[in-house]
Every structure is written in C-alpha cells, then in structure tokens.
C-alpha cells in the first residue's frame, strides 16, 4: 500500500477522532506498527487536537483536586487496609474468605481489630475532609504548593507568600509555562502575565545557573517580533519583569549581563 496515499485518505484523522470502525481501527494500528511515518502522522494529529483541547481549557473549581484525591485514597484504603496479628507481628490478609474461615475467640478478635482499623480510617478521612472544606479553597492550593516546595528544599526559601499566591490565582492573571528546547530539554520556566497591568512575572525558573557575565533574558512575541521583557536571575522566588502588550508567545535566551536589544542566542525555553 502506498503510505502517502494512506495518510492522504483521512483515515488517520478518523482513527484519532474515534470515528473509525473496528476493521479500520485494527488496520490503522497494524499500519502504525509497520510504518514509522504513519505512527508519526498519528502523533501529529493527536498533538493538534490536544492543542485544540488545551486552547479551550477551563480551570476546574480549586477544591476538586483534593476532593478527587480523597476519593481515590479512600478507594485504595478500602482495598489495602492491613491488620497486624499481634501474636506474631505478621500482616493478616484480610479477605472476606479468610474472615469467614477464621473461627472462635481469635476470629472475633480479628474482626474487632479489622473494625477498629476501618473505623480509624473512616474517622481520619472525615476529619481530613472537614478540615479541607473549612480552609479556603485558594489557601488549600497554596498550602499544597508550600508543602511541596518545603519538601523539595527543606528550608523556607522558595515558599510562596500569600500575596504571591493571590496574584497567581487571580482571574486577571494568565499563566504560561515555557518548556525546554533542543539542548535544554529539562528546563522549564513558569510565567504569569497580569492582563490588567500587562506586567510579566517570572514565577519559578528551572534553568541551569548561567556562566559569569551572562544573564537569561525573556522575550515576548508581540506583533510577530521579539520584544524585550526583561532579564532575570536564577532564584527560587517570583521576579517582576517588564510590561508587555498581549503576547503571542514567550521565549528565553542567554544574553550578556544586562540584556541585549535583540536576541542573539538559541532559545532555551519557550511556550505560549
């Protein structure tokens, strides 16, 4: 079969969109396994549609993340509640079958132990649930973030101030994540752009420390041209950069200290 004709037929789009019938699906999957071009083409179609979904993303209410995680943990606790046999310290496998097979005093003891364990876990869940609901939604996000950061750094450095968290959660703020390009695949930079004041904030840069005499510079793509949005240092804190008109995208390059009027090096990270 001619690969280009196959790609041109539109079958791959149908496949990704879930429109292909069983026979077509099997055929596409077999072709994809056989031909890297087809696999790559499928991936590109997926990427385009994924971008479409991300362009139309809506942030869910902040409390949902904790709520869902609690549901997930409750479900997995049910499956894995462990009871220790106090006589020998072994974990007792608490399947229904075994409970019904265990008789007499020891069986009753096990059942009580199991009930206590279950009750404790239920109470803990209720307690945690109430606490989360009591705390303000925005705070729960901030706390989560702080805990994460604290765990990562084990110091107070990098902790988010409440004002910072408010700014990031404000509906006026648009967030952008710049991702590493060739040669700096592991780098990321989180930006916040205030739609009211047009100011750009660098939330957290994850970039290697630049060589002496060099600094990272942020560029905003405005009217299809790169516009200087300020230089920044590598520190675990939010930095206010320059004001820029509605940008189409952002990119970061490495420039001489103090910045350059035009970008002179390869892009380290970029994003829209």
């Amino acid at each position: 079969m001619n690969i280009q004709e196959y790609i041109a037929s539109g079958i791959l789009e149908s496949y990704v969109l879930g429109l292909a019938n069983e026979k077509e699906t099997a055929e596409v999957e077999q072709m994809a396994e056989q031909w890297p071009e087809i696999k790559a083409e499928i991936r590109q179609i997926e990427n385009a549609l994924e971008s479409y979904a991300f362009a139309n993303a809506q942030t869910p209410p902040a409390h949902l993340q904790n709520q869902i995680w609690e549901k997930i943990s409750a479900e997995s606790n049910e499956a894995t509640t462990k009871v220790i046999d106090f006589d020998n310290g072994n974990v007792v496998d608490l399947t229904e079958q075994q409970i019904s097979r265990t008789n007499g005093f020891f069986g009753a003891y096990l059942k009580i132990a199991a009930s206590v364990a279950l009750l404790t876990s239920v109470l803990a869940n209720i307690y945690l649930g109430t606490r989360w609901k009591e705390s303000k939604e925005s705070l729960s996000l901030a706390i989560n973030e702080n805990i994460k950061l604290q765990k990562a750094s084990k110091t107070e450095e990098g902790m988010m101030m409440p004002s910072e968290v408010n700014m990031l959660l404000s509906p006026e703020t648009k967030m952008s994540k710049l991702v590493g390009q060739k040669g700096s695949e592991n780098s990321t930079v989180i930006l916040a752009w205030d739609t009211k004041t047009n100011k750009v904030y660098l939330v957290r840069p994850n970039l290697p420390v630049p060589p002496d005499g060099m600094q990272y510079q942020l560029w905003a793509i405005v009217n299809d041209k790169p516009m200087d949005a300020g230089v920044f240092d590598i520190k675990n804190d939010t930095q206010e950069l320059k004001k820029v008109p509605t940008p189409k995208a952002f990119a970061v390059t490495l420039e001489k200290k103090g910045g350059s009027p035009v970008p002179t090096s390869a892009i380290k990270v970029m994003g829209i």
């Binding site: 362009a55 993303a57 942030t59 209410p61 752009w193």
Partner: peptide
C-alpha cells in the same frame, strides 16, 4: 457561559494558543 461562582482562569500555556485556535 461560565457561572460567576466559578471564576475561570485560563489554563497554563494557553495565552497564545487560544489566539491561534480562534
């Protein structure tokens, strides 16, 4: 149309992406 109760902030990455897709 989104309720005021749920303030919708634009998701990460989507500043320019939305413009393109529009």
């Amino acid at each position: 149309q989104v309720d005021n109760e749920y303030q919708i902030v634009q998701d990460i990455d989507s500043i320019g992406l939305k413009k393109v897709v529009d």
